[in-house]
Design a binder for these strands. Structure first.
Length: 103
DNA sequence: GCTTTGACACTAA
DNA sequence: CTTAGTGCCAAAG
């Protein structure tokens, strides 16, 4: 199982109404490659199977979605809101409440 | 097989 | 609050 696949697995484990961060995933994979996590997601991006919109930055910002295009960012925000996440000015509110912790 | 890139993180100023 | 700099590591070139 390569790096990317493990990233996808973790994404799928995130329950509805919760989110996670690139950092948390990297930690769970026992690496500090936060950036590589994002790389993996953008490359494969299988929205049908992988809720990659649940992955945000550690500081509560949204990050990107299928690149860093603002249009897709909006879509990501809409998906998150639809999942019960509150967002204000491209930042997550109540991070602590919605952040899903692995392990 | 070395160099660059990037959906990030962290600290300091 | 914003910039600027440094670290990170898998993938792409």
């Amino acid at each position: 199982m390569n790096f990317s696949e493990r990233v996808y697995e973790l994404c799928r484990k995130i329950p509805r109404g919760k989110i996670s961060t690139y950092r948390e995933i990297a930690k769970k994979l026992h690496t500090k490659s936060y950036r590589a996590v994002g790389q993996a997601l953008k490359h494969n991006q299988d929205p049908k199977k992988i809720p990659c919109f649940k992955i945000v930055k550690a500081n509560g910002e949204i990050g990107g979605y299928s690149g860093i295009n603002p249009k897709n960012i909006s879509k990501k925000i809409r998906l998150l809101k639809n999942d019960g996440i509150k967002i204000k000015d491209n930042k997550i509110l109540n991070m602590k409440n919605v952040l899903y912790k692995f392990r």
